[in-house]
Nucleic acid binder design. Structure first.
Lengths: 207, 207
DNA sequence: GAGGGTATAGGACGAACGTCCAAATTCAGG
DNA sequence: CCTGAATTTGGACGTTCGTCCTATACCCTC
């Protein structure tokens, strides 16, 4: 277990607390208690709370970029990669049920606070949007690739919001299955059929 | 223009401010300024901020119930009613782009605050969920009616979240069209075909 | 072991918060 | 008009917030 910088510890704790409690509702005192440092020590690393938020968003961007790179390395087809994204809803189900989507809830909160960092939060969405678009492009959906990417993003956001409200596992599973079916239909549509890696799955009725 | 009770004015102003700024970030001073009363006067009507939140949620429930009743009166088929719900994304597009969905963002915020009123906020979702389920039941989707209702809810939540992040009108229109198409496919599936009121529209490709 | 940059502690600061209260004002009925 | 209830006022209260400062501890290098 490697030693972590105080700064890294602050960002890590802030990241978790912003996710669980929201940015506005998380105080310096909360973070200080989590990291076990004094409140005054923050000023040495971050001059304002906004700077911590920027660092947290930067961290989330880096984490997600690493995740996407891992998927690129581990998978063999664009379709499989898109399925990786959809499957986050299952993998992170426990957290999503309790706190919602880390991207969506932050974006919504910053919009209400009319916070400067709205743009940075949007960049988190855009990271996935661009990546998903590329996958759809590789599948042969040139013109509509971006629309398809946004659709997948929207679908996952909606599932996360309702999963958070209702804590319903079965609902999440159903919607993920529905998204897989939707993706299969897009694969069938695509021109270069055959090498797209349609999954060996038993289909079932929508949704 | 009828005179409104001070209490009604407070709830109305709080409703709008909670929507635009969030519950936690809205202070008594904000509401007092909006209603043009003194801060101390709140205590006469509401003992705590939580009580104001309860009243606001109650108000939202009443508003939405009235809206559903209006749709019941103005439409002729369940399919048309479901389309009414989907069309809110267009009707309230301006507000949704700026502040997100009033139901979803409140629910998410209260979850982060771990607030007692999470259940009441969930009831707002459940109002639409139950209503949508009934529409799907009348369309002949007995067993899966609730799943279909949740799917529509999730889809609209996702669109609202991304509309808020990206301020993209074309995206919203595309997703609404996609939902209409999805609904048409469900209508075609339904057993009692013919009297379901499939819309006279030109279809186009998904999403 | 002295010196100097790095890091941490602890508290002061004013502002804003939710809450609460006592006094002032408004208003209706006798 | 008088009176008592309903309503409103403005400010006090204790707390917490983000910010900022200074004093102290730490640690490497000479």
């Amino acid at each position: 277990m490697s030693e972590k910088t105080t700064r890294e510890q602050i960002v890590e704790a802030a990241d978790a607390l912003f996710y669980r409690q929201g940015y506005d509702h998380t105080s310096f005192a909360d973070i200080a208690e989590a990291v076990q440092i004094s409140r005054g020590n923050f000023y040495y690393y971050f001059k304002t709370k906004d700077e911590i938020l920027d660092a947290v968003i930067e961290q989330r961007l880096a984490d997600r970029r690493a995740m996407l790179a891992r998927w690129e390395a581990e998978t063999e087809s664009p379709a499989e990669r898109i399925r990786c994204y959809i499957k986050i809803l299952i993998t992170n189900q426990a957290d999503i049920k309790r706190y919602g989507c880390p991207l969506g809830t932050l974006s919504s909160e910053l919009a209400k606070l009319n916070h400067e960092a709205q743009g940075e939060a949007k960049a988190l969405f855009t990271l996935f949007r661009t990546w998903l678009r590329r996958q759809f492009e590789e599948l042969g959906h040139g013109a509509e690739a971006d629309a398809l990417a946004l659709h997948v993003l929207a679908a996952s956001q909606g599932v996360a919001t309702l999963a958070n409200a209702y804590q319903d596992d079965a609902f999440v599973r159903r919607e993920v299955e529905g998204l897989f079916d939707w993706l299969d239909a897009r694969l069938a549509e695509a021109k270069n059929t055959g090498k797209n890696g349609a999954r060996p799955r038993k289909r079932q009725a929508a949704p």
